[in-house]
C-alpha cells in the first residue's frame, strides 16, 4: 500500500469544534500543507497542548482545500484535553503518517466502520466514489446516538447500512454479521474499528473470498517507526514486512511490522494475529 507522503510537524489553528454525540468530538483545523498531502487511511499525531507526555494518534477524517479534521472519542486524559480545544486555539500536529488504503480500480467497495473507526473511512469512501465505484458503508455502534456522521456518508453517495448492539437503529447485532448477510459480495473491503470487529471482518472477508484492508489501532509511542512499540505479526512474504533476517536464522515464520510505519492499513490475509 505505497502511499507514503512527505510528513512534517504542522503548527495549525482550530477553526471548528463540534460535539457530535456525547464524548465524540470533531475538531476542524486550518492546515493547508497537511490537507494537501493527506491520503486515505493516513493518521496524525497530535501534540498535547498542555505538554502532557506523548502525542495522541488520531485518524484523519477530512482533508480538503485548507482544512483537516479529526474525529475522536474523548476517553483518556489526552483526548479529553483535545476535546476542550476552542476555535482559535493553536495546535501542533505531526503528519500525515503511515501507509493508507489502496482502492485501485475496485468498482464495488464495502467499508466497515465500528464506532469512531468512522474517522478513518471518509477519505477512502470519497476516493472510491470519485473513481466511480459503488460504496456501501456498514456502520456499527453500541447505540443509535453514536452513529455519528452517517448522513454525511449518505450525502457523499454511500449506501449506508447500520447495526447497533441494542437494536435502537438498523440491524440488531454486530455490523460484521450484516456484512456477512449480503447477497452481493463487494470486490474490496476496507475496515476500521475495534480489534474484535477487525478480526471478524477478516474472517468474513475470507469466507466471502474478498480481499480486505484493515486499519489497525494500537497504542503508539513515537508514531513514526522509531520505537517498535506498536507491532503486529505479519507473514514474511508480505510486501509490507520490514526487512529482517531469513526465518531460519530467526526461528519464526512471521515478522513484526510496525502498525505506525508499515501500517496502519494491512491486508487481512497477511496478518498473523
Amino acid at each position: 500500500m505505497p502511499t507514503v507522503s512527505p510528513s512534517a510537524v504542522h503548527d495549525v489553528t482550530v477553526i471548528d469544534r463540534r460535539e457530535l454525540a456525547p464524548g465524540i468530538v470533531l475538531i476542524g483545523l486550518h492546515a493547508p500543507a497537511l490537507a494537501r498531502v493527506t491520503r486515505p487511511g493516513h493518521f496524525a499525531m497530535v501534540i498535547p497542548p498542555s505538554g502532557e507526555t506523548a502525542a495522541t494518534a488520531l485518524g484523519i477524517y477530512e482533508a480538503h482545500d485548507e482544512r483537516v479534521s479529526l474525529l475522536f472519542f474523548a476517553v483518556g486524559k489526552r483526548t479529553h484535553e483535545l476535546a476542550t480545544l476552542k476555535i482559535g486555539d493553536p495546535l501542533g500536529v505531526i503528519g500525515p503518517l503511515g501507509n493508507g488504503f489502496t482502492i485501485g480500480d475496485a468498482r464495488d467497495v464495502a467499508i466497515v466502520a465500528g464506532g469512531v473507526g468512522i474517522a478513518s473511512v471518509l477519505l477512502p469512501a470519497q476516493r472510491a466514489l470519485a473513481a466511480g465505484a459503488r460504496v456501501r458503508l456498514y456502520y456499527g455502534a453500541r447505540t443509535r446516538d453514536l452513529l455519528v456522521e452517517r448522513e454525511r456518508f449518505a450525502a457523499e453517495g454511500c449506501d449506508v447500512l447500520v447495526a447497533t448492539d441494542d437494536g435502537s437503529d438498523g440491524y440488531r447485532g454486530y455490523v460484521t454479521e450484516l456484512l456477512a448477510q449480503t447477497h452481493e459480495p463487494p470486490e474490496l473491503i476496507l475496515a476500521c474499528g475495534p480489534s474484535p470487529m477487525l478480526r471478524a471482518v477478516a474472517r468474513t472477508a475470507g469466507e466471502m473470498n474478498v480481499p480486505a484492508q484493515l486499519s489497525l489501532e494500537e497504542t503508539f509511542a513515537c508514531g513514526v517507526g522509531g520505537c517498535w512499540g506498536c507491532v503486529v505479526p505479519l507473514v514474511r512474504d508480505s510486501a509490507q514486512a520490514p526487512s529482517f533476517p531469513p526465518a531460519e536464522r530467526q526461528g519464526s515464520d512471521v515478522v513484526y511490522a510496525r502498525i505506525c510505519k508499515e501500517g496502519p492499513v494491512f491486508w487481512a490475509h497477511e496478518l498473523r494475529w
Partner: peptide, 25 residues
C-alpha cells in the same frame, strides 16, 4: 523477534514499554 504485544501502555506522566530488544542480529 522481541516481546509479545501489547508492548506499550501509557501511564501517569510517562509510559511503560516492553519491546524486548527486537532487532535483526
Amino acid at each position: 523477534l522481541g516481546n509479545p504485544t501489547p508492548r506499550l501502555v501509557h501511564t501517569p506522566a510517562g509510559m511503560l514499554n516492553a519491546i524486548g530488544l527486537q532487532n535483526p542480529g
